[in-house]
Amino acid sequence: MCVKRAPAPGAKIPLTADGSAIDTRNLGFTMSPHEECAVEEAVRLVEAHGGSATVMTLGPPEAAEQMRDGIATGADHGVLVETDRTDWDPQATAAALGEAIAQLQQEGARFDLVLFGNESADAAHEQVSVRVAHRLGLPIVNGIKGLETSDGHVALRRDTAAGSERYEVPLPAAVAVKKGLNLPRYPALKGRMRARKATVRTIAALHHPGGLTSHGLRYPPDETTETEILGRGADAAPRVVELLGEEGLT
């Protein structure tokens, strides 16, 4: 599985004074919710069918923390594709991840399934998974909330507004999953001990920047509206029903 280190903000996300980045001084870091599901799914597949699960992350040396979270959940190996501390664009990220996976394959590793989160909580480029899959020549489907393997294939379910779609993709394959796929477990103490001791492999990443260059972050224009207070407690009910009437709902 490929995961990404991202800040874990509360309801408000603080920016640095110059607005160029998130002020992470008082924030913890985590992998994104979709990726937690990717890790959980990989661990479950290994529990059910054997084999091993490798969690890979591209990022600064500190990103080893997120890999250890993956190992604490039950992954067997961790690979850090190490960058400088700058934010890489999706093309550069995908190129380096693809090269790292290809390197592991050349060394004899064989991956039946490469899992991604559908999009990261912070950048949400929604394309790294697809670009990596193309580099590796793997089929890929995004937005997956159901996954079942059977001899040589993986059956995938994607929910749409009109219902659901089922895909039957030959292995090896890549899949980008979404939260709701499973309920990620909370790592047990034993897992956290193991993660602390586990050795993490580091591969240096080569930076091939793509054409999307970030200039900084800002808050969207304020969306506060004038709020009409319809009342307090049960006494507000007639006014609420009147409003429902105005909406054509009564």
């Binding site: 709020t227 009409e228 009342g231 049960a234 507000a236 009910a237 609420v240």
Partner: peptide, 26 residues
């Protein structure tokens, strides 16, 4: 509440129960 167009200040259960009853009456 600050960002909504309309708000009712009160307990969810109390307010909704009254709204459902009022709706049925209406």
């Amino acid at each position: 509440v600050q960002r909504a167009d309309y708000a009712v200040i009160g307990d969810v259960q109390t307010v909704l129960r009254a709204v459902v009853d009022e709706l049925d009456r209406a």
